[in-house]
Write a protein that binds this DNA or RNA. Sequence first.
DNA 1: CGCCAGGCCTGCACGC
DNA 2: TGCGTGCAGGCCTGGC
Length: 271
Amino acid sequence: MPELPEVETTRRGLEPRLVGRRIERAVIRERRLRRPIPKKLPEWLAGAKIRSIGRRGKYLLIGCGHGTLIVHLGMSGRLWVVASTTPAGKHDHFDLVLDDGRTLRFKDPRRFGLLLWCGQNPLAHPLLKDIGPEPLTPAFGGEYLHRQTRSRSAAIKLVLMDSRLVAGIGNIYASEALFRAGIRPSTPARRLSRARCDVLAEKVRETLQDAIVAGGSSLRDYVNSAGEAGFFQDKFNVYDRAGEACFKCATAIKGIRQGQRATYYCPRCQR
DNA sequence: CGCCAGGCCTGCACGC
DNA sequence: TGCGTGCAGGCCTGGC
């Protein structure tokens, strides 16, 4: 489900609801996620005060002073705030009961998500330390993209989705950014000129920014921390539009497979 | 029934 | 030999 815009939308929604709250207790209902939820997590969290809600790539960082709860939503994960009296439903694997009568709830049908505890600097955690620059910061740009792709013969779409190169770009936004940049997804990354890297970096930023403003994309079940759907899916130019007319030139959008993932592009607008 | 789905870690094969 | 790189598999449920 969630790529950077959905995680950022979640972060922004959670921040005012969580920061300053005390955690009364944590409840684990199903430990088996991509990695098991640590058994001691409730022990570590009980009584802690939430100080910050951060994000690194697609990881949410719930800062508690003496440590950080690291949350990844995987494909189908969802994190939102409910009244503590709301009964847990199917796939509601984890709760943080807060001191204001509300509960932060984690639901994840496919269980590809992740809940970890990190006692030190979370950015140094093995799962986070090799993540590339945030695409919405000056650390990411055409110069960086050009330099980093000189030795990469793989298709640019696959390279964009490599989290070591740049954080947070998943299958949807890779296709959408490449459409906006007019670049064919199969182009070997090393063959992109500096000028085209400039355009692509800018379009990546623009696409992610637009999606955040739209509250993310809701395909199957994504909703924000208040339970509301995003609407960026209504602005997709190519994603999941195989056979439909390109909004710019009316050519039929193509759907192909790259690295076992679906890719969409306009064969006329993207060269 | 088989296939597909927004993620990403892991381990292996390959070529320089 | 070792490194970077490129693949494929695996983890799950649900919907078509």
